[in-house]
Design a protein around this nucleic acid. Structure first.
Lengths: 111, 111
DNA sequence: CACATTAGTTCAATGTTTCCGAACAAAGGA
DNA sequence: TCCTTTGTTCGGAAACATTGAACTAATGTG
């Protein structure tokens, strides 16, 4: 189990970020991490950040993609892996994109 | 050659929109259509909206994806197909998303 | 300490998308 | 009529996503 690798955000392309967000499950994960972060909560484990119907192998893959896009940072903590949104860094690199994507269709509108 | 079908934007999911934007070639097409629209220009033919190195079959596919995401409207005009960005409709459905995506990495920053 | 449990990862098979050359179609010219 | 230009469609190869099963690592528990 290799340690996680997190890209610097200036290495991340816009298309990569958008691709990571272009999936309902991953969008949901990012939303939960964002909500959780705003509420001042601790980082979320993979299981807690996603809907439970998703198979674990698939989930693991989703988190890998989110990491690769610079969207989340993961660290091991006991049995679990805790994740947090790299909000500030993403905002600095792609201003307003996360706000728009999360806000535009946050909870107010039908998806 | 069937007539093009354009979805209503309330039928389009955020993930679908993001997926359509999550490709450098398509992002480039959308940027050009946007620039062109802002400049008050006529609609752009498929060929004119994209980098010429892309094979035509691939291009055609890109345009199909953009249409399916509600991002562009296409109409036949002689031999060519003219395209325009459905800016107002996309903005109404997903406020700020296009602005952020096009603006955040428009021409000022390195991609 | 041995054994079980829990949370994720890796592997491998399968399924789905994407890419693109080649053949095709339709609209104008020459 | 035949040629050219602009896209589309087809079909096979390549790339990517999904997921069950086997695995690993941390941490209980008897």
């Amino acid at each position: 189990m290799a340690r996680f690798t997190h890209p610097r955000l200036d290495e991340v392309q816009l298309a990569t970020l958008l691709h990571a967000l272009a999936d309902p499950a991953r969008l949901e994960i990012v939303r939960r991490l964002d909500d959780h972060g705003r509420a001042g909560g601790e980082d979320l484990a993979c299981g807690g950040a996603a809907a439970c119907e998703i198979p674990r192998a698939t989930l693991s893959n989703h988190f890998t993609i989110l990491r690769g896009a610079g969207l989340i940072e993961s660290r091991k903590h006991g049995v679990q892996v805790l994740n947090r949104l790299r909000r500030a860094e993403v905002d600095a690199r792609f201003p307003r994109v996360l706000d728009a994507v999360l806000g535009a269709n946050g909870r107010s509108q039908a998806v």
